[in-house]
Write a protein that binds this DNA or RNA. Sequence first.
DNA 1: TCTAATAGCGTACGTGATTAACAGTTTATA
DNA 2: TATAAACTGTTAATCACGTACGCTATTAGA
Lengths: 247, 247
Amino acid sequence: MMEGMSSDLIPRLWGKSPPGRRGPKPALSVAQIVEAAYVIADEQGLAAVSMARVAEALGCSPMALYRHVKNKDELLILLADRLCAELPAPSRDLGWRDGLAAWMRAQVDLSLSRPWFLDLPLVGTLPGPNRLAWIDLGFYYLREVTLPPEEKMAILGIISQYALGEARIEIEAARFPENPYARFEEMLVTYADPERFPNLMESMATWRPAGPGEESDSDDPSAFGQRLLMAGIAAHIERHMGRSTPK
Amino acid sequence: MMEGMSSDLIPRLWGKSPPGRRGPKPALSVAQIVEAAYVIADEQGLAAVSMARVAEALGCSPMALYRHVKNKDELLILLADRLCAELPAPSRDLGWRDGLAAWMRAQVDLSLSRPWFLDLPLVGTLPGPNRLAWIDLGFYYLREVTLPPEEKMAILGIISQYALGEARIEIEAARFPENPYARFEEMLVTYADPERFPNLMESMATWRPAGPGEESDSDDPSAFGQRLLMAGIAAHIERHMGRSTPK
DNA sequence: TCTAATAGCGTACGTGATTAACAGTTTATA
DNA sequence: TATAAACTGTTAATCACGTACGCTATTAGA
C-alpha cells in the first residue's frame, strides 16, 4: 500500500517492475501487452487498439490488462516508446549536418510507414528507453559540436517536430496524387471571396504551375523545408563554434 | 439525390449550404452547432464535446445534429476552423521578420489559452475561411518578399508547425514549475544505464544548471528555437532576393 | 390540393473504458 | 508447518458515446 499517488508509468517504461514477492507468477507482462497492441495498430490502425482487442489477441480477459497497465492512455504512451524501437539507425559515418538530416528523415519515414504514429501522444511525455536511445543518437551526431546540452536537446526537438509535420504533409500529398495545390486553388476560386484574401490571391495570381517536364525551382517541398531548418541550425552552430566544422 | 459520394464538408466550411427549397425551416444551423461545441470545449475541454452534450446545449436531440453535420469528425474540423477565428491579428506595421514572429507567437498563445486546440485535427485538412484568413495575414507580412507562393506557403506551414510544437512544450513546462530538466535528469540517473546512452550522458555531464540569479546563455528556449527558425528563413529569403529587405 | 423533400425526434444497437467484488495461487512470516 | 498477506486473472455490471433506422410534422412547388 505504499504506492498510490501518481502512477508507476516510469518504472513500467523502463521495464522495472518491483519484483513482487508473493502471488502467482504473472502470465502476462507489460512487454507482451505492448507488443500485442503494436501488432494490432500496425495491422488495423490505432483506432483498432482497444483494451478488448488487445486482450483477445493475448487470450486473456480485458480486465487482466489493468493489472499491468494503469489505463489505456498509459498503454498508448508505452506503445509510442515501443514504436521508437523501430527507428532504423542511419550510418554513424556522417558529420553533424548529414547525420541530423538522416536522423530526421528516419523519423519521417517511420511516420510514413506507420501513420498511426502521428496520432500517438508523443510530446508532453517523458521519453522512454527507446526514444531516449534515439535522442542519444542525435547527440552522437552532435558530439563534435560544442553547445550546451539543453540547446542540443532543443535542436533535436525542433527537428523531430518538423519531421512529424513533414510526414503529415507527405501523407496528405500522397492521398491526392494530382498537384495538391490544384485542390487548394480550386477551393479558393470556388468559394473564397477574392477581396477577403487579397494577399493570398495576389500571390497566387503570379503563380505559374510547374509544367509537366520541368522541375520546379524549389524541387521538393520536403527538401525545401529541410534546407530551411538546417540552414538555421548551421548558422547557430557555426556562430557558436567560431570556426567551420569538420566534414 | 445528386450528392452522395464524399461529403459536403467544404460547402459547410464556407457556410454555403444549398438553400433547400421545401421542408420546414431549420431551427438549427451549422454555425450554431459549431458555436455550441466551441463553448463546451472552451469550458470543459475537448473530451467533453460529445454529440449528446452539444445537442443538450442547443436544446435539441442528439440526432438532430446529423442533419447539419455528417458526423463528429466533421464537426471537429469545423470547430478547428472556428477556433482560428480567435487568432488576434498582430499589428500590420511590421516587416516580414517581426511580422512573422508575431504571427507565430499568436498561434502559440492561442494554443496556450485553449490547449484543446492541440488535440484537434488541424493538418491533413483543407483550411476553412478563418484559417485561410490567417494564412492570408501571413502572406501580407511576406508581401514584399519575392518568393513563389508555394514557398511562402511552405514557410508559413513550417512556422505554424513549430508554433504548435512550441505550445506543447510550454504547456508541459508549465505543469512542472521546477526546471523541466530536473525531472528529466532524475529519470536518467534513476533508470537509465549510462552505457546505453553514452552521448547523452557525456553531454549532460558537462551541463551546468543555471544558477538562481544568472540567466542562461540561451535565455529562453522558446526564443532560441524561434531564432533558429527565423535565421533559416531569413537566409533563404535574402539569398533569393539578392539584396537586403526593407525594414 | 396534393406531393415530395426536409427537419427534428425516439429508439436501439454496438463498442469501449473502467469499477467492484471474487476466486485461485504463491510466498513470507508466525 | 500453518496462516495470512499479497498478487493475478475473471466475471458481471455500469456508464458514456457515436450513430443507423424509421417515424412524424412541416413546408414549398406542382
